[in-house]
């Protein structure tokens, strides 16, 4: 049994205070997404560990709850790209710093976290006449 009065060996974070709703940025400071939830995995001894940060409507919807939350998940479920209908997922080993923002070692293009944006780009924007000539 753990002794709660013993000073922890590692850094202490309160998930709601230090993780949820924080901005995720890449090494250059470019904004990637917000942290909408986190995925936990139980170790063999029953201790949970954070294994990924979750982003997007499919992660935020259940937190919001009610009809609005269900609608967010449903829309994400229908309008998604190859990343699938689930939330965007940032493996925790990519996190290099937890501060006023969450810094990750990956670039936005390398993370499967923009399902809805990708769907809108490929299914809507790219089909607009002249889209292929538009400057990036």
């Amino acid at each position: 049994m753990s002794d709660p009065h013993r000073t922890p060996a590692g850094r202490v974070y309160d998930a709601y205070l230090h993780l949820l709703d924080r901005q995720v940025i890449d090494p250059d400071g470019q904004m990637i997404s917000k942290v909408d939830d986190a995925e936990l995995e139980l170790a063999e001894d029953g201790t949970p560990y954070v294994i990924a940060l979750l982003t997007g409507p499919a992660a935020l919807g259940p937190r919001v709850g009610g009809q609005l939350g269900k609608a967010m998940v449903a829309i994400q479920g229908r309008l998604h790209s190859a990343g699938g209908p689930g939330p965007g997922r940032i493996p925790i080993h990519l996190v290099t710093d937890i501060g006023s923002a969450i810094t990750v070692s990956a670039r936005p293009a390398d993370l499967p976290i923009r399902g809805l944006e990708d769907w809108v780009r490929t299914r809507v924007i790219d089909r607009i006449p002249g889209a292929s000539d538009a400057p990036q």
Partner: peptide, 14 residues
Amino acid sequence: DVRLVQDGPPRDLG
């Protein structure tokens, strides 16, 4: 809130 402590064994060189 859920209190987290960063003292677990590293995973994937993180």
